[in-house]
Simulated assay, not measured.
Amino acid sequence: MTSALIGRSLPMEALPTTEVDYLQLGETSAISELWDGNVLTCPRDTPRHQMILNALGNALRAGRTDLNVITGIPVRLGPGRIAVPDLIITGAIDPDVPLVEAGSVRLVCEITSAASATVDWTLKMHAYAQARIPCYLVAEPERGLLHSHMLTAQGYVEQSVMQLVRVTGLNL
């Protein structure tokens, strides 16, 4: 099985590649990430996912002018590891560089789906902690929950669980 990319296709399974090759992919019709030398692809988001993403972004941005709230941008977590989180909050960054360094990221957020929940709760949670990103939010639309985790020396520790509808105003 392949997923269509602009001008070419990539298999759904991982393909060995370098970071330089990954960055040369440019914009694709699938979300592509680099994990330890392998490009992994997944389909684009659903309207429900985008509605939650936009509402979370607006809630996190409220009243703040000193932070950047950015969706769908690659983040370099380390050598050979570039993730595309659903949403990040950064301090000052160069808006013309095609990816953000993990050291600039203050918060990362993933919105789970049936296809991504295991990866979001395990692989990504561990990789974001290893990259020393201070805060990790996980939104679970299926359960209507938003989990907030803070980084400690041992990894992420859950700080709170909120009703997603109370944070976003969306009752999906």
Rank of each mutant, 00 (worst) to 15 (best):
G78R: 02
H149C: 08
V75P: 00
T168A: 09
N38K: 15
L23M: 10
A92H: 15
P141D: 03
A30C: 07
V108A: 15
P11I: 05
S116A: 12
G37P: 01
R64I: 11
D45W: 03
C135E: 15
R64W: 15
E33N: 00
L15Q: 07
V167K: 15
A83I: 02
V105D: 04
Q50Y: 09
A62M: 14
M1L: 13
S3M: 07
Y22D: 02
H126W: 07
V157C: 12
E142C: 04
T28C: 03
V161K: 12
L107I: 07
D86Y: 04
H149N: 12
H126V: 07
D96N: 09
I31H: 06
H149G: 00
L10F: 05
S104T: 07
A59E: 08
D36G: 03
I52A: 05
D96V: 02
W35Y: 10
L107E: 03
L99S: 11
D21V: 00
A62I: 11
A115E: 05
L23W: 05
L99K: 08
A30V: 00
A83R: 02
P43D: 03
G57L: 10
A4E: 13
S116C: 13
D86H: 06
V108N: 07
N68F: 09
S32V: 00
E158W: 13
V100K: 02
P98G: 04
V161A: 10
S104W: 11
E33I: 01
W121V: 00
Y22M: 01
A127P: 04
G103I: 13
L77A: 04
D36E: 06
R132E: 05
G155W: 09
I88Y: 05
V100L: 05
H126A: 09
I133V: 11
D66F: 10
T112M: 06
I82C: 00
N171C: 12
G57R: 10
L23S: 02
L5V: 04
V105K: 12
I133A: 00
Y156M: 03
P16N: 11
G155V: 00
D94N: 14
C109F: 10
H126M: 09
I70L: 15
S104V: 07
S9R: 00
V108M: 14
T41I: 08
A131P: 04
A131D: 03
L151I: 03
G103F: 15
Q24K: 10
L67Y: 10
A114G: 12
A83L: 04
E140W: 15
I82Y: 02
G26W: 08
S104P: 02
A139F: 10
R166Y: 08
E110C: 10
C135K: 14
V69Q: 12
L99F: 13
T122H: 15
L5F: 09
K124M: 04
I6S: 01
R76D: 01
Q159C: 04
L5Q: 12
V165H: 15
S9P: 00
A14C: 14
L10S: 02
A62F: 15
L56Y: 09
D66T: 05
L164Q: 06
W121D: 07
G80S: 07
P134G: 14
E33H: 03
R132Q: 07
D66M: 09
L123V: 06
L60R: 06
M1G: 13
R61Y: 11
V105Q: 14
H147L: 01
I82Q: 01
A62L: 15
A30I: 00
I6A: 00
G57E: 11
